[in-house]
Design a binder for these strands. Structure first.
Lengths: 260, 260
DNA sequence: TCAACTTTGTGCATCCGTTCACAAGCGGTA
DNA sequence: TACCGCTTGTGAACGGATGCACAAAGTTGA
């Protein structure tokens, strides 16, 4: 927690930096700024945040855009532009203060609040999610589990007893669930989604391989293994096609026969 | 290939359509076309494919761009453009033949070949992946499992015995693994990735929350739960901020003061 | 055969995100 | 203090994806 600006009352830590930022910028500015951040940039900010957290743990106090970009797998111009959406918190000629940057990204990502999570569908994946340690430690406590199987009701998984799916509305309201995770078979996903929405959940992470139909005000993110595999498959095929094409001309692009 | 269409001789349709397509178009054309498909469109093609498969199972033989777009959650113009990357296989005034479209998308996505998958890291997630039925049925047989824990070696998971990670090179080569799935703790991910790459695996699906460094010729896709959750968190926060903005003007959107 | 109707395929304009390039700003040094 | 070198922050150019709008092409029915 060493502060690089040695000049004066430097007990300025994360919280203090945050407060001064809030003071310098009106709430409306922050709002306007957040609204304007491209979705792709938000995803990268989350990655930067993890890298920065790792840096902080290793005692790094300052980092340049070049270094951070390298660690995050992007180019430095993009990184600086992404950070500029958050605000101007770097020091020219020096770089960024790791702690300060962490706190500002957390603020923009809304990580200063707790977001209670409900997992629906306690099969293989649901178990894995309920036991996944990464959630609570990052501000996403798993507050409820649901399944349609009555035999599972009451059984604790990852320390939390499973509720029957029929209780979803009351339990979600009571525990202030803001994010619902759907890990059910595809046939059940839309119905579960509808129930979550009517329970007031406005953000859904969907692992079921279906396209959910939701009202406009509900945000859905999809994690689809089959799609990911098929994208990889596409690249395998394209690569093989290119190799075949190049081989027709005798040798590979770089003069070497690829996978002979 | 496993035939998921239950209707008897339907594999013939697929194969025949493919053959005629290959005849109508030179291999170079197909290659050129595949090279030009935007990544975003590839992801959507995989979604269309699933929707179409479902339609086929329900006995639907023909579908219009409007219907398919609705089911896939995109607008019809985008859908038609995406399909135009694959080729012109619709009938004006009618729509698309479901079977034909399925076979052409499968061809473009490279699903006419088998892609053997290796899963590394047999923890909660690894178990879920090994037992996930969606892979084999869609042409992605899980051919190998690896873990660093010697106690797991030889134990069958999802019908496949776990190998020790030290055997990764030989086993991957022997079983012609083309896609590696990393489900290890983050600390181990880069080392595992390096081993997969040196074993000749060129496509990697990474569930570990780290940015993998790989040679240019290796394709990596990342599934990052923390990032997904944080993106949702951002939207929760943005929404709350917007509501708060309304509060500045008096009361919240629904007449309730948020965070008083 | 022809006209009316439906739906595809695509050129074009637009928008959004990425990249480039450099001025502005800061710390260090003499 | 004045200068030098380094790094940020951002205006502007660029490129790629999206959405519109319509001609082309096929079907249906008389």
């Amino acid at each position: 927690m060493v502060d690089r600006r040695g000049a004066g009352d430097e007990v300025v830590t994360t919280a203090a930096a945050k407060r001064s930022a809030d003071a310098a910028e009106s709430a409306a500015d922050v709002r306007e700024r957040a609204r304007a951040i491209p979705e792709a940039a938000v995803a990268r900010l989350a990655v930067y945040l993890r890298v920065l957290s790792g840096m902080a743990e290793q005692g790094v106090t300052t980092i340049s855009s070049e270094e951070l970009a390298g660690a995050a797998g992007v180019n430095s111009a993009k990184l600086r532009k992404d950070l500029s959406y958050v605000g101007s918190y770097g020091t020219r000629g020096v770089g960024y203060d790791v702690e300060v940057l962490v706190s500002h990204i957390e603020r923009i990502l809304g990580l200063t609040r707790k977001h209670s999570v409900a997992v629906v569908g306690i099969g293989n994946l649901g178990h894995a999610l309920a036991n996944y340690g990464g959630f609570p430690s990052r501000g996403f406590p798993v507050a409820a589990l649901f399944d349609i199987d009555p035999d599972l009701t009451g059984v604790p998984v990852g320390g939390i007893p499973v509720n029957h799916i029929d209780d979803i509305t009351s339990v979600c309201a009571e525990r202030e669930v803001s994010i619902g995770v759907i890990a059910t078979p595809p046939q059940a996903a839309q119905a579960v989604c509808d129930r979550l929405v009517s329970a007031g959940v406005q953000c859904i992470l969907n692992f079921a391989p279906v396209v959910l139909q939701v009202p406009d005000y509900v945000e859905v993110r999809k994690v689809d293994l089959a799609v990911e595999m098929q994208i990889l498959s596409f690249h395998v095929a394209r690569r093989a096609d290119e190799a075949a094409g190049d081989v027709v001309n005798g040798v590979g692009v770089d003069g070497v026969v690829i996978r002979p």
